[in-house]
Design a binder for these strands. Sequence first.
RNA 1: AUCUCCUC
Length: 253
Amino acid sequence: ESLPCVVFRTLYKAKRYEEALPYLEDALSSKKYCNTILCNMAINCLGKTKRWDEAVVVFERMSTDLAHAPDGMTHSVIINALALSGRWEEAIALFDSMVKSSDPTLRENSPAMTSSLNSAINACDISGRWQDALELLRRADRDGVKADMISFSTTMNALVRAGKCDGALAVFREMISRKLEPGLVACNFVLTNCSKHKKGEVALEFLEVMRKAKLKITSVSYNAVITALYREEKPEKVLATFREMQLYRLCPD
RNA sequence: AUCUCCUC
């Protein structure tokens, strides 16, 4: 076995990215044990430690001296590194290059395409580009990419962060109609942001949709909605929702 | 064997 590869993988899997860095170069230069997956781990390790330019360098080296063709997952991790460094335009461009790729093994790798879409949407969220996030989600079908629960949740995050709570509600309704159940935490994040932006009525509608879809509702959810209504100065609805909460069987937190 | 959102 190649020890640098073993040590690098071990530290990587333990998410000890900083400690894994010193072994990265030796692991990559192992002729026998370096493969595409190890390169993907290396790129992600550099991304996790905010070494974005170095991550891009390894990505480019894969096609040259490392001689391991980048696969769908490689694209996904590099798009994520671009996302975290605020390079949303490059992230979207790389995602588009996958969609338009003449290589069917890339386009037909559905999990990697979805993950890349999600990283691209996340890039938009991080950079405050909610319009672009929404556009990526809207054209996913046309692009032949399957949008999943994370695609919808991330788009909602981008929208509510920008105060576009009614837009997020529309995404939420579509998500429910597609039978993609958002997690409790994702719902609560949306509701918390509704209260930050004083969108009480919208928060109330979210709660209604959640109830109809039989999603879990906790005290965090009700707290956020009531706070939102209070900040929007809807005293009657504050009281009505508070009374409703006392009658409703809340899920434990 | 590798990736992506989320309550402060």
